[in-house]
Design a protein around this nucleic acid. Structure first.
Lengths: 276, 276
DNA sequence: CAGCTATTCACTCACTTAATCACAATACTT
DNA sequence: AAGTATTGTGATTAAGTGAGTGAATAGCTG
């Protein structure tokens, strides 16, 4: 039973890696049974028998399957490592080619202004947000204030980046929304100041019907800010992370966040000053 | 002019990496001009203006573009390294997931026979053939006879593999079809015996209208053979490599090749014996 | 408010892929 | 040797996806 899900996952992954549905199903069927005829494959993969041949031919040209031209033909899948490496290197190679092709582009003269301050950019998706977070952490020279709103975003890699920043004399301060998370992070980064945020609205929206959840909040050198949150917009139920990013000491977003963070910090260090 | 080709190549690569045409074109346009409005992008990419928005939204969710929600909206591409790394890691991650999903498949009981000797398998495409070549080289314990029919297949990696084999006491013998190639290979692998094949039919087919060209021919431990050739079957003009692979000392293909190779070697070492 | 631009949305067309069928070729059976 | 089942190829249809286009909406400028 567990394997059914494994199989479906493999098929889906293969499709994401560029194979068609029939190709993916045929390959998985072959990988399971080591060798087989078109009929065999059709039976264990519900690919129409007459279409197995086309699918196999594509797989063969990609180096994932070998064919014995007997009658009936017998097909064999290469080893799993073999297959994965083949697919992977195909994409790694493409990515390298892409890098050089992009580098060789001649820039159009227009629009090439330097990064303006006081702008707000929005980004979306875990990938981009994580990437921008890293950039900000690496670029900081003085201070990093990070509020972690969800344990899923505190990855090993993030911990490394923060550690590295601190070793470069950046003052790292981390806020969390509850004690559990605080303990986890303090554990991973003993030399960093980790506190539980005094800002209630971080963990619970004051508004009703607000199903967004603060994901991360990063203030770098008090002049660049990144805020992201999870929203459950999608019909498919999956959460999507959205964020905004601003730079410049006089950037409105940065300014207000700076104030808020100061408040949050104060309320921890000096509860009396909460009203500031 | 050169850059036009660079741009087209970048677009094609991006599509191969999973982006749609509009997405790829929009990204390249943005990468060239650093930042721009939908109008700007449309003009430098001939993507219909009205569809730039959709494309950008996808790019944003993939972490390749950031958006400034002004009016008009302004878009900005992340750095080239940023973008390439993002795309690449996406696929590397998928490949890793695939590896574990495939490993976790439960094998069907049937068809799971061990590799029979005296079978001939056919493979197709540079990828698979190169991969199978590597396997044979790595698995050899006594002797490797390789005939290189085309300089494109003698890669650095192949040279390394051969070098490594020889260091494991495998007797490596390399045949070529002309002196130029011989010199190149001898240069890369000084300690290996490189000769010009005495087999005329390797370089020129005795048949008319035969536009196939022997690509590689590998005999491992005199019991496994791989032969491949280029055929110009495709309508798109591109050449395609096809090959066959057999194992087993008594395999018909292996036997005949063994004889042929012996003849070729003899005719070089001892021209008198060509009639053997 | 009028006229413009920017943005979104809905729709058509073309192309790719999934699915089914008809038929030819090959092997197997009696 | 003839008939039957199985295998392989090609043609055909149906469904889905993406490219391309235009209409409708929203927002800005004067």
């Amino acid at each position: 039973m567990e394997d059914v899900s494994n199989q479906d996952q493999a098929i889906e992954l293969l499709q994401q890696l560029g194979l068609k549905e029939y190709e993916a199903k045929s390959f998985v069927a072959l990988a399971r049974r080591q060798r087989g005829t078109a009929k065999d494959i059709s039976e264990t993969s519900d690919v129409p028998r007459t279409r197995v041949y086309d699918a196999i031919r594509i797989l063969e040209s990609k180096g994932l399957v070998e064919t014995q031209h007997s009658n009936p033909q017998i097909f064999r899948a290469v080893s799993i490592d073999e297959a994965v490496n083949t697919l992977q290197s195909e994409y790694v190679d493409r990515a390298e080619s892409l890098r050089s092709a992009l580098s060789g582009l001649d820039p159009t003269d227009e629009g090439d202004s330097t990064e303006a301050t006081h702008e707000v950019w929005s980004i979306s998706g875990d990938q981009g947000i994580t990437s921008r977070t890293r950039q900000l952490i690496e670029g900081a020279t003085e201070e990093l204030i990070l509020v972690v709103g969800h344990n899923s975003i505190f990855t090993d890699r993030l911990a490394e980046q923060l550690q590295s920043a601190q070793e470069h004399d950046v003052n790292v301060i981390i806020g969390t929304i509850d004690e559990d998370l605080q303990a986890t992070i303090q554990d991973a980064l003993p030399s960093v100041e980790v506190f539980v945020s005094g800002l209630d609205w971080l963990s619970r929206s004051p508004l009703p019907d607000d199903d967004t959840e603060i994901s991360r909040l990063l203030l770098a050198d008090r002049e660049a800010i990144l805020v992201s949150s999870f929203t459950e917009t999608r019909a498919d139920g999956r959460e999507h992370e959205q964020g905004v990013f601003g730079r410049g000491f006089d950037n409105g977003l940065v300014a207000i966040t700076r104030r808020l963070m100061a408040t949050g910090l104060l309320s921890v260090n000096d509860p009396e000053a909460e009203e500031a």
